[in-house]
Amino acid sequence: MRTDKIYSLSKVLQEEGILFCYSGYMTEDVLLSIGKAIKEKLMLENADKSVIRGIFSIFVEEMQNVIRYSGQMESKVSANSMLELRFGILSVGRKQLANDQESFFVACGNMVSPTDAQRLKTNLDHIQALDAQELKTLYKQTLKGKSPEGSKGAGVGFIDIARKSKRGFEYDFIDISTDRTFFSITAYA
């Protein structure tokens, strides 16, 4: 890669207030190392302890979503094991919000199928419209109920993200092709 390309990439990240960015295959080992780096970086930035806890928690949920559900994946099946690698992009940054407050954020993006995109949108539209009390009720109901079909986790990750996003969250979808949609979510702690 040419130096000027790398420089312009790093400049874009800087302009977006990004302190940390990872793009590539995500695994649980990558999660562990990045998680440590993010905590250390936020401590150096003198972030509140409660903000660091919130960011870390959102980071784990977003990252595990990619590891489990990203639609862009490579897999190799052998006699007694299956290797699956899923692709995504994750960044942590700092942004001046409209009300002149500064907020740390975790932004994450990955490919999904159009069917999953529709399901995610319905879910997230619903969650975003809830107030704190309603989120708490839904959170507890989901913890007590069965995981939604096709879910490898508790199906409660996005509700948890919404509860930890003290300054809200936003998400969007871009149709890339007939069978690929790019999904991203940014949560402000």
């Binding site: 806890r53 784990v60 595990q64 507890k140 508790a154 409660v156 990750g157 948890d160």
Partner: peptide, 12 residues
């Protein structure tokens, strides 16, 4: 110190 959402379900 910290638990993720799938652990939250186990705790429930």
């Amino acid at each position: 110190i910290y638990f993720n959402s799938s652990t939250a379900k186990v705790l429930m």
